[in-house]
Amino acid sequence: MIDLVIDQRRKDLGGFEVGRVLPYAKRRMVGPFVFFDHMGPVDFQAGFPRSVDVRPHPHIGLSTVTYLFDGQITHRDSVGAIQEINPGEVNWMTAGSGITHSERFETLREQGGHMHGIQAWVALPTELEEIAPSFANHKPDDLPTYEGGGMWARLIAGKAFGAEAKVATRSPLFYVHWRLDAGAKAQLPAEYPERAAYVAAGQVEVDGRTFQAGQMLVFAPGHTITFTALTDAIVMLLGGEPLGPRFIEWNFVSTSKERIEQAKADWRAGRMKLPDADDQEFIPLPEPAPPANPMS
């Protein structure tokens, strides 16, 4: 039932750590999900430096999905959106032909507090890779919930468990937040060909094995998966219909290497519009490391 277990790789973003899960060498995508980062958990003291913020940067060919358990992030982008995301909300930004955005921790900088969440990228279908960029914030009322048997669940996006979230997705997918009490059991049906579960907190048992925070389980198709919470736990379920392989370089996702090279050239030359409300700085395109000096 379990095809692969992926352990998060901790990465310092210059003030807080994320756990990088996807892409992974042995599994680049799960359904349309091409990127999965576990942000925090981290406790910020009031007054931390602005260098912790994520400065404006570009994307093409994907949608970014930000979901928080705790904390606040202020989003600004080149289509004019300025939106603070709070716990239980979804920020769904579609890059399409190209968008730039920043992520600022303004409320946390002022007040201090706990930050914990997930950022995922969802690839766009080939025929929609160049659609116009857009942004939407969805409040908890847009996201169906269920509670019973020691389990609380929220459908973040897509269709699953007989429900549908009011989030405009571009291909068949599901994305679910589970909170499980210790001892609770829950099942993931064999509804989609590609499925995974990420343990964001606590410990769960699946197929007689114990898994803990920071591990993603990728499942074989065609089987119902039973989870037993060994402690109070948070589990994120994700997957959907596969879209085919994608090239991923820096913040760009595409079916075409040439399109990524064009996006890199556009960003390097300053041809991608910055957010109006946040156009005083940006993240430069990472340049390849120079070749090693053979005489050194």
Rank of each mutant, 00 (worst) to 15 (best):
I118N: 02
Q119T: 02
Q119I: 02
A120M: 06
A120F: 03
W121R: 02
W121L: 02
W121N: 02
V122K: 00
A123T: 04
A123R: 00
A123E: 05
A123F: 03
A123Q: 02
L124W: 02
L124C: 02
L124E: 01
P125D: 05
P125G: 01
P125R: 00
P125K: 01
P125Q: 05
T126Y: 12
T126C: 04
E127C: 10
E127L: 08
E127N: 11
E127F: 12
L128D: 05
L128C: 07
E129P: 04
E130M: 04
E130D: 15
I131Y: 07
A132C: 09
A132F: 10
P133K: 09
S134H: 10
S134N: 08
F135Y: 11
F135P: 00
F135H: 13
A136W: 15
A136C: 13
A136R: 14
A136Q: 13
N137V: 05
N137W: 13
H138V: 04
H138S: 12
H138N: 06
H138W: 12
K139V: 07
K139C: 08
P140H: 04
P140K: 04
D141F: 15
D141T: 07
D141Q: 14
D142H: 15
D142C: 13
L143C: 04
P144W: 00
T145F: 06
T145Y: 07
Y146P: 09
E147H: 09
E147Q: 12
E147F: 10
G148E: 11
G149Q: 09
G149H: 14
G149V: 10
G150W: 07
G150F: 06
G150E: 11
M151L: 15
W152G: 06
A153T: 08
R154H: 06
R154T: 11
L155E: 03
I156S: 01
A157N: 02
G158A: 07
K159D: 15
K159Y: 06
A160E: 01
A160P: 00
F161W: 08
F161M: 11
F161L: 13
G162C: 14
A163C: 14
A163I: 03
A163G: 07
E164L: 13
E164R: 07
A165Y: 00
K166F: 12
K166L: 05
K166V: 06
V167L: 07
A168K: 12
A168Y: 09
A168V: 04
A168L: 12
